[in-house]
Design a protein around this nucleic acid. Structure first.
Length: 462
RNA sequence: GGCCCCGUCGUCUAGAGGUCAGGAUCCAUGGUUUUCAUCCAUGUUACAGGAGUUCAAUUCUCCUCGGGGUCACCA
């Protein structure tokens, strides 16, 4: 069984990059009838917050990414880690290091001065004497001092590191006894049964250290898939400074979960020429082996297109429900159907859709200057009067076609082109020259409101 | 700086030892539309550079250049 996980550290909201790795992990587990687990990496008490953890959960909920079982909180697992630290100590695979912080930084400075790489020199590796006074020791693991460590990566291929280049006896427990990241990751992944690790490739250089831990503890090493970063416009790692990276901000801006997910799944992954993926298709087709090797640049043009696509293809009832989050409440059933029919292929976001709806429902309080100049001619008042009279006289006005028939009548009786009535009428109804079909608008507004707007325009011009 | 990863249209990407290097988006133009949007059609734009292997390289190898990541008692 395939078990994947998403393991954020709760130092802020869930961002786009994290969401993408979460999505990849989720899809891969689901595709294989496996499990997708969630672990909160909150061992750094100073920087973590409960709010941040909740924000991540909220985002998951909005997107419908459900994790399996209980959430693992690292902060609640101190005894477990302590147990493994003791084990390594007992087995002589780790040791106490009494080097003070001052001594350590002194060592670093000399190394830098000599253009050597900075690393711990192993001075307490085989220490048996009486420890120095007043220093709380850290625990260091005995890492190999030579040889090659190969990370078998499903995305990058085999990546090999020389122990000499990158390893030293790194700290697995701080002076206060708390364990460090590279140590707990290995333990938690093993204990949780995670066997496929999908994460950002900024972790690739950490992986050899984790492999040292896996091997010291005799754990089986999982498969790794290091997915390339998402970069900002400058080509740098995406950070909080790069505008909207908070996933929940996309909800506020009016993006649909499906559009965001579809957008992200195509960032760094593809399946031939296919652009549109339903959740089911993603689950069926996704394979981490197909993830790109190169980083991608974050650019929302395609997200807008996808969002427009999903809005267009959503049912009116779905849209009406979603719009309530944007303070748009559509009451009458008929109106709701017509208004969404004509507007849903004009909006890139739900927020925009809401705006377009308001624009139609509100009686114009002013008229666009250029529109008046261009389309409100000397005979326009006469034409509008004639049309208004027809509306006033008609008792059966419900459908767009009812209004359309009246427009046709005016056109043929007055021997004018359709534009002669359409343009001024559009100004009267909307205050400007662009917008959806007039017959539908009138059907939405109803007889009274339509007559009012026509009368207003005539008064304004007269 | 050491180590590691990466390099196809502006962007997201497909591609394979021989392709007119494909799709999508964006942009532009045309059609549809009384208008705008949608939709449809058309078009501009790419294999970082240099060697090598080969009959043939954008594809394989090496170098250069460029970009990124990582080097903590953070995660």
């Amino acid at each position: 069984m395939i078990v994947t996980r998403f393991a954020p550290s709760p130092t802020g909201y869930l961002h786009i990059g994290g969401l993408r790795t979460a999505l990849f992990s989720y899809l891969w587990a689901k595709k294989n009838n496996g499990k997708f687990l969630l672990r909160i990496e909150d061992t750094d008490k100073a920087r973590n917050s409960v709010e941040a953890a909740n924000a991540i959960l909220e985002a998951f909920q909005w997107l419908g990414l459900a994790h399996e079982g209980e959430i693992t909180y690292q902060s609640q697992r101190d005894e477990i880690y302590a147990q493994y630290i003791k084990q390594l100590l007992d087995e002589g695979k780790a040791y106490k290091c009494y080097m003070s912080k001052e001594e350590l930084s002194e060592l670093r400075e000399t190394q830098m001065a000599n253009k050597q790489r900075t690393m711990y020199d192993g001075r307490y590796r085989d220490f048996n004497d009486t420890p120095p006074e007043g220093v709380e020791p850290v625990i260091r693991i005995k890492a190999p001092q030579s040889g090659t460590i190969i990370v078998k990566d499903g995305v990058k291929g085999d990546v090999s590191f020389q122990a000499l280049d990158i390893l030293d006896d790194f700290v697995i427990a701080r002076a206060d006894g708390s364990p460090t990241y590279n140590f707990v990751v290995a333990i938690d992944d093993h204990l949780m049964g995670v066997n496929q690790v999908i994460r950002g490739d900024d972790h690739l250089s950490n992986t050899p250290k984790q492999i040292v831990v896996y091997e010291a503890l005799g754990f089986e090493i999982p498969s790794f898939y290091h997915v390339p970063m998402i970069h900002n416009h400058e080509g740098k790692k995406l950070s909080k400074r790069d505008g909207a990276t908070d996933v929940m901000a996309y909800k506020e801006m009016g993006y649909l979960p499906q559009a965001l997910l579809n957008f992200l799944v195509r960032l760094g992954w593809s399946h031939g020429d296919q652009e549109i993926f339903s959740m089911d298709e993603m689950m069926e087709l996704f394979n981490p082996e197909d993830i790109n090797k190169s980083a991608s640049i974050y650019n929302t043009e395609k997200l807008d297109w996808l969002n427009a696509h999903y809005i267009k293809n959503s049912s009116n009832s779905t849209l009406a429900e979603l719009l309530s989050d944007y303070d748009i409440v559509l009451t009458s059933h008929d109106k709701k159907e017509i208004i969404l029919d004509i507007l849903k292929d004009r909006a890139k976001t739900l927020k925009e859709l809401g705006f377009l709806i308001q624009e139609i429902l509100q009686t114009p309080t002013s008229y666009d200057e250029k529109a008046l100049k261009k389309a409100f001619k000397s005979d326009s008042v006469e034409i509008l009067n004639a049309f208004g009279a027809k509306i006033s006289a008609s008792s059966e006005l419900h459908l767009p076609s009812d209004y359309h028939a009246l427009m046709e009548e005016v056109v043929s009786e007055m021997q004018i082109s359709f534009g002669k009535i359409g343009q001024p009428l559009r100004i009267a109804l909307l205050g400007k020259l662009s917008g959806p079909g007039l017959d539908s608008i009138m059907a939405i507004l109803g007889k009274q409101e339509t007559m009012l707007r026509i009368a207003n325009a005539i008064t304004f011009q007269a």
